[in-house]
Amino acid sequence: MGIITRRWGDPHLGRELRHPLENRLLAMCVAVTWLAVIGAVSRAYAGEPGEPLLLLSIPALVYFVRGQLFARQRINGVRITEDQFPEAYRMVADAAAVFNMRRVPEAYVVLGNGVLNAFASGHGSRRYVAINSDLFEVGGRLADPDALRFVIGHEVGHIAAGHTSFLRHFGISVANVIPGVGSTLGRAQEYTADNHAHLFCPEGAQGLRMFVAGKYLYTAVDFDAVAERARTDTGFFVLLVNLLSSHPVNTFRFAALADRGRPGRVL
């Protein structure tokens, strides 16, 4: 595991950019999963059918889901290469270089059907980024390459930070189905990826406004005004929505990018 981790990220840079709560939350989530697995093994040895065997099948399930997801991007998407979308390929390669990665991850454009989204994942020793076409065109037809650079830096940052490894996904698999547990780690990971993206292209953070108002209206949005609402728009239900979300709510996320002296708010 150490060789693969070093191949995809610089541990020294990773420590600087990682959200301060991420490793503690990761340890908590892994502990939850392993306690569940140990309990399943005990029940299986005791002769209980059903649920214990289901829990013990999690590694195979995680492997299968990751493999199927990767195959879907390869056979349905457009691979970003030096010949196909060369500007975007250079962004991916530049991000990998900034994060001291030994290899450039694969990257794909996939049909978005109006959804603005991108993600990073992996299968085996391979890592990749997938960007929905509606988000990808922000850097092309809508002429905001910095926004696309930030998105690419964010997703490559997930890979550099080790968020896409099989062992990590298996280790947090049970915690992910418990409301508020796995999602809290997810928010810390998103802040870590944003820290990578900010290092790579700080001016591109303005492009996140598209996740508030869409790709045609976002240039009219005041970034700082959204960030300021993290201080004024609070309360039980705001915190509840954030707790159950795998990503920080927009006001918290914008605030973390506006004030680089503080880590993003996880809770």
Rank of each mutant, 00 (worst) to 15 (best):
A197H: 01
L217Y: 12
Y63P: 01
A188I: 07
V226A: 06
Q189R: 15
N100C: 05
T33D: 04
F252V: 14
F70Q: 03
D222M: 09
D94L: 09
A60S: 10
D83T: 14
E22K: 03
R209K: 15
E155W: 04
L244A: 08
A205K: 07
P20M: 08
A120D: 03
T219R: 08
F150I: 08
H198V: 15
I159H: 06
Q73T: 14
L257T: 12
P52L: 09
D94C: 03
V41F: 03
C29T: 03
V78N: 12
P52H: 13
Y216N: 14
L185K: 07
E137A: 06
F64D: 02
A71K: 04
T81H: 05
V115S: 06
E137W: 01
D259N: 14
A220K: 03
H163D: 14
Y45N: 15
G214R: 02
S133H: 05
G9K: 04
L239P: 00
A44M: 00
V241T: 13
A147W: 08
R168L: 13
V138P: 05
D146T: 14
A193H: 04
A97C: 01
T232I: 07
R231Q: 14
A213R: 14
L244T: 13
G67A: 05
D146Y: 12
G153R: 05
R262Y: 00
L239E: 09
Y128P: 01
S133Y: 05
P59T: 11
S173K: 02
G180L: 12
A107G: 15
S57W: 06
L21V: 10
G50S: 04
R90F: 07
A88G: 04
L35C: 04
T251V: 09
F236S: 10
T251S: 08
T232H: 09
R7K: 11
R15E: 11
Y45A: 15
Y63Q: 09
T219K: 03
G140V: 12
R24D: 04
S173I: 10
A188P: 01
H169W: 06
A160M: 07
V30M: 13
S125Q: 11
R149W: 05
A27W: 10
V109M: 08
R141L: 04
R74N: 07
L239Q: 10
L208R: 09
A97F: 00
M91D: 15
D146V: 13
F170Y: 10
G114L: 11
R260I: 02
S165N: 15
A46K: 12
G140T: 15
G9R: 05
M210S: 08
R187D: 00
A227Q: 06
I131R: 08
F119N: 03
G140C: 08
V98N: 01
V98M: 06
P105R: 11
H19F: 07
H196D: 10
G214W: 01
G112V: 08
V266S: 04
